[in-house]
Amino acid sequence: MDIRSFQQDLRACLADTLGGEDDLYDESKFYQVKKLIDRFNGREGQTDSDKKWTRKVTDVRNWFLFSASERWREDNQEKEYYSDSAGKSGGQKEKLAYTILASALAYQFGLEWGETRSKSFRFVMIDEAFGRGSDDSARYGLELFSKLNLQLLIVTPLQKIHVIENYVKSVNLVHNEEGKNSMLRNLTIEEYHREKEAR
């Protein structure tokens, strides 16, 4: 109820404010916005409840409910059903998150499954997404991104490079010895493999 009410308040703040010359941002609009900002800041005597409300309504994960059915391709039998990620193992949650991310990217870029040529620029930066998860789940996500022909820039700790090395063409190693001077080395994946074997 809080989320729906907050969304309605946001829409009311923006209604009739943009567009033609007759649209005015008048004093009543100012007070609608001020009411929300006051609640974000914590009203006198209601600071704790307002902080709790703010955390709830500004976390967009609370804005949507979802369900998903994972099916076997061979016979369309249901393998797994998700009604959010509650009750799932860490690996299942990771795979679900990667599937949702890949689906969102496919939708955003207008991608077709199996399409090999496209004029669209499909660049995605992934910052430490694979740092805490399992190697299997990370490979699952990388396979999905590969099938969508996405160009990836992956930022990851060196300990996780073994997970991504089959999915990248070059490696940029950043090293900061004793926290004084950062050094950057650019290597093709082949050069990286040769150096790794020589160690």
Rank of each mutant, 00 (worst) to 15 (best):
N166M: 05
M183R: 05
L158G: 04
V168S: 02
Y167C: 00
N186D: 11
Q159L: 09
P157R: 00
V168E: 01
L184E: 05
E177H: 02
E178S: 12
N181Q: 09
K160Q: 12
V171M: 08
R185N: 09
N181R: 12
I161E: 00
N166F: 10
S182I: 12
V163K: 01
L173T: 13
E178H: 11
K160H: 09
T156A: 06
N172G: 06
Y167M: 01
I164F: 01
V168N: 02
T156L: 08
L187E: 08
E178W: 09
E165K: 14
K169C: 06
L187Y: 10
N181I: 14
Q159F: 14
K180H: 06
I164H: 00
L158Q: 07
N172D: 09
L184G: 03
N176S: 12
L158A: 14
E165N: 06
N176L: 11
V163A: 04
Q159E: 13
I161M: 10
I161H: 07
N186V: 15
T156V: 13
H162T: 08
L158P: 01
L158H: 02
L184W: 08
V168P: 00
N181F: 04
E165D: 05
S170G: 15
V174I: 15
N181W: 03
G179I: 07
V171G: 03
V168A: 10
K169M: 05
S182P: 01
S170L: 10
L173K: 07
I164W: 00
V168R: 01
R185A: 14
Y167K: 01
P157E: 07
G179W: 01
M183Y: 03
P157G: 05
S170R: 14
H175Q: 07
V174F: 12
N186Q: 10
L158W: 03
V168W: 03
V163L: 03
N186E: 10
E177I: 06
R185L: 13
L187H: 08
L158T: 15
H162G: 02
H162F: 04
E177M: 01
L184F: 07
M183G: 03
E178F: 12
I164Y: 00
Y167F: 13
I164L: 02
N166L: 06
V163P: 02
L158E: 02
T156I: 13
N176V: 15
V171W: 06
S182K: 06
H175L: 11
T156N: 01
G179T: 04
N181H: 07
N166S: 08
L187Q: 08
I164V: 09
R185E: 12
S182W: 09
N186Y: 14
V168C: 04
L187S: 08
V171L: 10
N172K: 06
N176Q: 10
N186M: 08
S182E: 11
Y167H: 01
L187N: 05
P157Q: 10
I164G: 01
T156E: 04
N186H: 15
R185Y: 15
I164A: 02
